[in-house]
Each structure stands twice: as C-alpha cells, then as structure tokens.
Amino acid sequence: MLLSQFLLLSAILFSIGVYGVIVRRNGVAVLMAIELILNSVNINLVAFGAMHGNLSGQVFALFIIAVAAAEVGVGLAIILSIYRNRRSVALDELDLMKG
C-alpha cells in the first residue's frame, strides 16, 4: 500500500474537521469535529510508524487517544457549566470577552 493514501485520507478528515469547527454553532458539535481532527492525526502517526517499522508511532497514537479522552471530559464539563449559566450552548452568544 502506498503511504500517501493514508496521509491523504487523514488530510481529508482533518479538513472536514476544520470545516466543522468553523461552521458549527453548537458546542457539542464542535467537540465532535475536534474528535475528527484528533483521529486524522492518529492515522498519520500509525502509518508513519508502519513505514519505518518503528513502534513510536503506535505508542504516540495511544497517548493521543488518552489525552483526547481527558480533553472530551474537560470540554463537556465546560459546556455543561456554560449551559447551566446561560441556558444555551450556542457559541455565537458567548461574547463576554468581546471588546
């Protein structure tokens, strides 16, 4: 298998994730787009590890999965407390720090 096909797949997923982060207005939907981005990075790491016959790629992917789990936990906690204060998770309405 070509290495580029995995890198292109992950580039497509990354771009779709960036599109989702820009376009979505709901906090939870933005978190889902961030998951897409993190997954595309994992595919890249494992593919490079397979190319070099080196384990570091897989170990890095495992660490990224763990950090992503922590990130989702904290992100959802923040979204919940935003919801509790404002009764909405629409990101456009979070303009408290706007000058």
Binding site: M1, L2, L3, S4, L8, A11, F14, S15, I16, V18
Partner: peptide, 24 residues
C-alpha cells in the same frame, strides 16, 4: 473555502514528498 485550501496544501505536500513510498 478554508477546508478546501487546507486540503489542497496538505495534499500537495504529501504527494510531492512521498510520491511512491510504500508500506512494507
């Protein structure tokens, strides 16, 4: 537009760098 431009850049860099490299 941002997503398409980003994908174009990534795809160009990928194909230009690893054109025929294959996994063992």
């Amino acid at each position: 537009v941002v997503a398409v431009v980003l994908f174009g850049l990534l795809a160009f860099a990928t194909i230009d760098t690893f054109e025929d490299a294959k996994l063992p």
